[in-house]
Each structure stands twice: as C-alpha cells, then as structure tokens.
Computed example of a mutant assay.
Amino acid sequence: MSFILFAEQVLNGLQLGVMLFVMAAGLTLVFGVMGLINLAHGSLYMVGAFAAAAVAGLTGSFVLALVAALAAAAAAGALVEMLVIRRLYDRDHLDQVLATFALILIFSEGTRWIFGSFPLFLNIPDYLAGPVTLPGGIQYPLYRLTLIAIGLAIAGGLFLLISRTRLGIQIRAGENDREMIAALGVDISKLYTIVFALGAALAGLAGALVGAIQSVQVGMGEPVLILAFVVIVIGGIGSIKGALVGAILVGLTDTLGGVLLPELFKTFMDNAAASSIGSALASMLIYILMACVLIAKPTGLFGART
C-alpha cells in the first residue's frame, strides 16, 4: 500500500471518528447524567438529517440546513424528554429499552409518512466541494476535512462547557449525586431537559453533516447508534474525553482494518477470497477492540470506577 493511500485512509478514519464522537457525546451525556439507556438517539440523528435535507431543498442554503437540523433535533429531544423519558427515570433499564425502542418505530414511521420512503439527498455546498492538496501530494476532499475540523471544534466546545460553565458544574454534579443538587435548589427536571436536548442537537447535527456524503433515508441512525454504543463502552460511560478517544479508535480501526486486512490476505490467497475474508474480519475488529479494552479495564478507558 502506498503512503498516499494509507494517509487518505487515516484521514477517512479520523473523519468517521469525529462524527461518531458528535453522535456519541450526546449519548454518553444522557446516560452519565440521567442514567437512561436511549435507543432512540439514532432516530434524532435521522431527524436532523431529514430536517437539513428539507430546508436545503427549500432554501438552497447549507448553513440554514445545519441550523434547522440543530433546532429540529433539539426540539424533538426536548419534547420526547418531557412527554416520555421523564416517566422512565425511576423505572428499570428494561422499561427504558422498551420505551425508547417504541420511539424508534414512531420516529421511523412518522418520517416515512412525512417524507416518503425514498431517500433524500443533501448536496455539498460549492465552497466546500472539490479536493485540496495536502503535504506529500495527498488529494483529499475539502468537505471531509471540514467535518474533521467541526468535530474537533465541538469536542473543544464540550470540554469548555463541562469544565468552565455553571451548566457544566451542574451536569458533573448530576452525574455524581442528583439528589444532592436537587436539595441545593437546582431544578433537576429542567437540567435533564437541557441535557437531553443538547444530546439530541448533537445527534441531529451529526446526521446533517454526514447526510451530505450519504443518502438521507429512514433508519439511517440505527447502524450509527450501534457504533456510538461501542464508542462509549470503550471510552467509558459519562466521559466526554473517553467518547472522543473511543470514537477515534473505532473510526481508525474500522477504516484501516477494511483496507489492510484484505491486502494482508492477498499475500497467500487469491484476490477474491482475500477480499471476502478480510472484509468479514474487518467488520469484527471494532468489537474485538471493545472486548480487549473491557478485559483490561472493565469501566472503559476513562470510565470512573463505582
């Protein structure tokens, strides 16, 4: 494999990783603060993608499409939290799983009813289209580099939010002792709604950004949700830093594994068999990575011990 191809795949893995982080950050916040298993998080990713595609189609503005994705996903998240999720905090995890799975079906059928069954397409804006030349003669799409930059900027913003703001102090306190901060006068219901809406907005933004390089269709959030759960298990539940590190590890492992393993098997078998076996093993690598991390550290890389 040439250096240029390897570098391109590393960048692809980094781009996948930071987008997984944007998706997983909201999920780990919700679970860490609220103790809620939210299977409907992928549906909020889908809501953001469809809102962005619809607004971009009406206005032709990519920026307005991203704003619409943030607003629609945050509004849907706040509404879901107040109407459904709020009743699940004192229930066991099985009830949470069943209720949020039902929300997946509601969101999927509702989206299909509004937009139809055919996929929508969100075009990359002209000012972000085309490749750029990086050091070493690497030609790489400008839009994917922009996704990496946006993801890292969101990571920095979340670190500042959690560590330097009053809301961040309340979120960290809520992770450790929600009864105590409620006794100190913090409106815990309002805090939960804000955290859930923030997580939903991040998922919707991720859906809109990725929707420009993939088709926007019903059910697009569920495969990403699985990867997001792997990310937070590897990084440690409730840890934003863990979500970032875990997402980059998953992105690089998934992307490089899909390229390197078939090349490795081609050295001692024919190309067709090497591609088939290598691709099958590559799809297992992230779960092998997760198992290895959990064997070494059952709470994840940055998870707090209970």
Rank of each mutant, 00 (worst) to 15 (best):
E81S: 00
R86A: 11
A212Y: 06
L134N: 13
G168M: 12
L64W: 08
G57P: 02
L249F: 07
G60D: 02
N123F: 05
V216D: 09
G238T: 11
D126T: 03
I124V: 15
Q170E: 14
Q170G: 04
S276W: 09
G60Q: 10
G151L: 02
A72I: 03
M290N: 09
R91P: 00
A243E: 07
G137T: 08
G13T: 00
S239N: 08
G77K: 00
R112T: 00
V84M: 10
F159N: 13
A208H: 02
Q139G: 07
G199F: 07
L122T: 10
A51C: 12
L58W: 14
L202Q: 04
A149D: 05
V195S: 06
V63R: 01
S43L: 01
L39R: 06
L244G: 06
T133Q: 14
G48I: 01
L44S: 02
A72R: 03
E222M: 12
L98T: 11
M23R: 05
L202D: 02
V245L: 14
Q170D: 13
M46Y: 03
L145K: 10
G235W: 13
G199W: 05
Q9G: 01
A182D: 01
L134A: 09
L27Y: 15
G77W: 00
A78W: 04
L11S: 10
I194K: 13
S163D: 10
L225K: 13
V259M: 13
P131I: 11
V97G: 07
S239E: 07
M19D: 03
L285F: 05
G168K: 09
G17H: 03
A72G: 07
L252G: 08
V22T: 09
A102D: 10
I106L: 15
L120A: 14
F159G: 04
L105G: 10
S2M: 00
G211L: 09
A76C: 14
I171W: 05
M1W: 04
Q96I: 07
A25P: 09
D187R: 03
M269E: 06
V293D: 06
I240P: 05
R86T: 05
K266T: 06
G236I: 05
E263C: 00
F21R: 01
S189F: 06
T299Y: 12
V224K: 04
A212S: 15
I213L: 11
L134I: 05
A102N: 06
R172D: 02
I248S: 02
L16D: 03
S108A: 09
G251A: 04
K266A: 13
R172K: 14
